[in-house]
Design a protein around this nucleic acid. Sequence first.
RNA 1: GGCCCCGUAGUUCAACGGAUAGAAUGGAAGUUUCCUAAACUUUAGAUACAGGUUCGAUUCCUGUCGGGGCUACCA
Length: 614
Amino acid sequence: MLHIETLIATAVAKIVREVSGEEVNPDSIVIQKTRKEFEGDFTLVVFPFARFLRQSPEQAADTIGKSLICELELVEKYQVVKGFLNLTLTKGFWQVFLLQSLDDAQFGYQKGHGGMVVRPEEGKKEKMGTDRPMVVEFSSPNTNKPLHLGHIRNNLLGYSVSLLLEAAGKRVFKVNLVNDRGIHICKSMLAWMLTGEGETPESSGKKGDKLVGDYYVRFEKMLREEADAIANEKGLSDEDARNEAPLMKQARELLRKWEERDHEVISVWKKMNGWVYDGFDKTYARLGIDFDKTYYESDTYLLGRDIVKEGLKQGLLYQKEDGSVWADLTEHNIDPKLLLRADGTSVYMTQDIGTAQLRYDDYGPEKMIYVVGNEQNHHFSVLKKVLDLLGKPYADAIHHLSYGMVELPAGRMKSREGTVVDADDLMDEMFATAGKMTEELGKTQDFPDEEKAVLYNTLGLGALKYFILKVDPKKNMLFNPEESIDFNGNTGPFIQYTYARIRSVMRKAGEERFESAKQGFAGAPLSEKEKQLLKILHDFPATVLEAAGEMSPARIANYAYELARSYNQFYHDHSVLNEPDLAVSNFRLCLSHLTAQAIHNAMALLGIKVPERM
RNA sequence: GGCCCCGUAGUUCAACGGAUAGAAUGGAAGUUUCCUAAACUUUAGAUACAGGUUCGAUUCCUGUCGGGGCUACCA
């Protein structure tokens, strides 16, 4: 059904044109929900038109209000407060909206492809009419360390943004890019080869990614000792000492051998990475994250290297005397960027060039979205410029979805100081807290153990995901390990609870009762709380489009909270099943059902499940 | 040094340039013979500072102060 704000805006544009002859772009007309201290449903901000109409804002509002009543049957009455035109819609409009939405299990989601509005850059609106897919890359782990809280934010964001784009009608491919090669991988390999004594996940009982991570830490410790000794002995700077250290030399040698496909090195590499993937798979599964395709840097860096060499041949890049290859970016006022080292090995940028090409070849996407922390803003701006320099058509399709850091009270997480919050540990804690809270409330005494476990998982993950996704992706956020994540107030469990409450009512009503209720609420009056709830429900489809356009799950999280809060207020003031007036009871039952549907669909966009009872 | 981002109640988060800056949490005070009190109600409490643009600024511009990031032949 047509969105009412659009309808009003179009009508206003027409009125202004008829009265003054001025053309007004309907997109520029501001319609907002009326603040609750005033009477009305929607408010038109009249100030911008007052000049066109050569009237005071109040007069202009009155003029437009009068015409709107004639123009739109849905508008029942209006009131003017200063330059604000407050419109009240008919009760019939709200009831028709409810009735039409009731049977839509996909309520809030776009049907079919295309037609969404996206604002990739601030303030820029752009119609996206094509059927080309969106590729969303997220997670992008290194295979030398387990996943931590930073990765959780990344994964949840990427996954939710993918769902959002899909809900907005796009075809979406979720891809992971595993950084499975490079000097850092060689470090954990080397430590394992030197000190591991054949330890495996099976022999030690450790999760594979944890085991490999331990060797990475061990390498850094051993290197520290060597570097300190050398620094003392030769009076070198820390950086130089680290580079001079035999361990570092061995690691570089290992990387060189790896690039030569040395059998022994490759076999250790495969073995250890296999352990890590087993570990990652468990963590992803538990988080509820999945991918359509996984790229490996080890498969793409050579392609990147070829593209760079080709660029060099075409004279788009230049070579230094030592043989290293560079991109000249002086026209952008950026330092030259190294793309191939003198020894021919590639750097991060090189492989990103390769992956971009591969991804373009694989999907021909409209946009390639990279969910990567804002510390890499510079990297991506350089990547786009280098691809542009190389004449790649997809340079513009690259969109860096840059998100803020998760910080601890003491600052950012540092593995060297052991302040990293491990992803698996955190999920364990959330599960335990959910169980403890629920049992203290005595809500699950009659639950079988299996249902308890499912519920605590749902609630623990719900709390965690909501906690992270409710924050604007662009902003840094704070996590305090000393305080457990809340289950009361503006939280995931609060919204889940609201859903469970509604489901309980629906169960008591029964399917038949609900079916007949749909046919029988025409005459029911509309209370303030009920209307408030309907207004919020009506907003859902537009909110999904906006959230998709801004690639901001936070918009959905805040929406879901507002909706749940509004329902709880309604629920507190009104009885659904004990209401004596049948029409009113029917109406409330339907209202409850649509609310549950909207909560379910909103939370689904965040990757959060909702329980039937809790 | 240069470039970029961020400063909103004690704390954690909201607010397309629009009305009296919203929530949550913590503090204070209440609500349950009634569909789930993980709820609801009341209450005190904030736009770092100084200018500018505007009918209107938390939002845009300039400067100051404070925090973070980037400025790698790490990723």
